[in-house]
Amino acid sequence: MNSKLHINREIESYLIFTNPTFTIHTEIPNRNQVLLPTELHKIPKLFKNYKTHENKSILNKIKTLQQDFSQIYPKSLIPFTKITPGLRCPHCRKVGHIHIDERMRHGQCMYCSTTTTRQSLYLENLKELYVLKNEPFTLKEAEAWCGGNRWAIRKICNKHFKKEGRHTFHYYL
């Protein structure tokens, strides 16, 4: 029962991720309370009653409590220029602890000793660059961010990101 809203039913809340580029890296706590973007088709099955009038009144009561979080959590918490570039370990999330030998296909984190392929390491860090910058990035910015082999970075950008712009003014989305 929800006494605050004067509803005589058990209310379950669900967290829905609507960002199409969302990637989860860990186990999902309370898995029965989380819907991923690929599971949105399950929403109608969550509601199993046929009391439409009562459901509308409950919906209206819940909507009155809806809050706009865009003011609480601004789009950019830290200016991009103040963020230190460098490869971040996908396992321990530490910056600057990855050692990549020029001829090796794998890099090793000196902090947690995790070995990661160079390609996946660059890809994860370039995705992070795009999110942190909050706009398309150039190849020079990608090279400065990752600080690695420019040809490997170019290949990953061309393969995994949408390339736009003209001849020398390419940027990646």
Rank of each mutant, 00 (worst) to 15 (best):
G148M: 03
Y111K: 15
P29V: 06
Y50A: 08
S13Q: 09
G107D: 04
T168S: 10
H91P: 01
K140F: 04
I11L: 00
I7W: 00
Y130G: 13
S113D: 12
T138Q: 05
R103T: 13
E135V: 11
C109E: 04
T168C: 07
I78L: 14
I72C: 04
H91M: 07
Q33H: 11
T26R: 10
E124D: 10
Y130N: 10
E141V: 02
K61Q: 08
F22M: 11
K94G: 06
R150E: 06
E128L: 14
T26Y: 03
P44H: 00
L59I: 11
I156W: 06
E102N: 08
P90S: 01
Y130D: 10
P74A: 00
R9V: 09
L5A: 01
R103C: 13
V95Y: 08
V95G: 09
T114L: 15
H6C: 12
Y172I: 05
F22G: 14
T26E: 03
K133C: 11
E135N: 14
S120K: 15
E39S: 01
H6T: 12
P29D: 02
T38S: 02
M1Q: 09
T84E: 14
H99Q: 15
S120R: 12
Y130L: 13
K75H: 15
C112W: 11
A144N: 08
E135M: 14
P79T: 12
I153L: 01
K42G: 00
G165D: 00
H106Y: 06
T116L: 06
C157N: 05
Q119D: 10
L173R: 02
K82G: 13
I72P: 07
Q66P: 07
M110D: 13
N30W: 07
V34S: 00
G96P: 05
I43C: 02
F80N: 03
K45T: 15
I28D: 00
E124C: 14
L123N: 07
N32D: 05
R166C: 07
T81R: 13
L87N: 13
T117K: 04
L36N: 01
K82E: 15
V95R: 10
K45N: 09
N8T: 04
Y171Q: 13
P37H: 00
F22T: 07
Q119Y: 05
E10K: 00
W151R: 14
Y172N: 01
T64Q: 11
H99G: 15
Y122K: 10
N8M: 12
F22S: 13
D101T: 14
L121C: 02
F69V: 06
P37T: 00
R88A: 08
I58N: 01
H25K: 05
L77D: 02
N125K: 06
L139Q: 07
I83E: 07
K42H: 01
T38G: 01
V131P: 02
E54C: 11
N32G: 03
L121F: 03
Y14G: 00
D68R: 03
I43W: 02
L87T: 11
L40S: 01
P74C: 00
M1L: 10
T117N: 08
R166E: 09
V131A: 11
L65K: 03
E164L: 08
S13T: 04
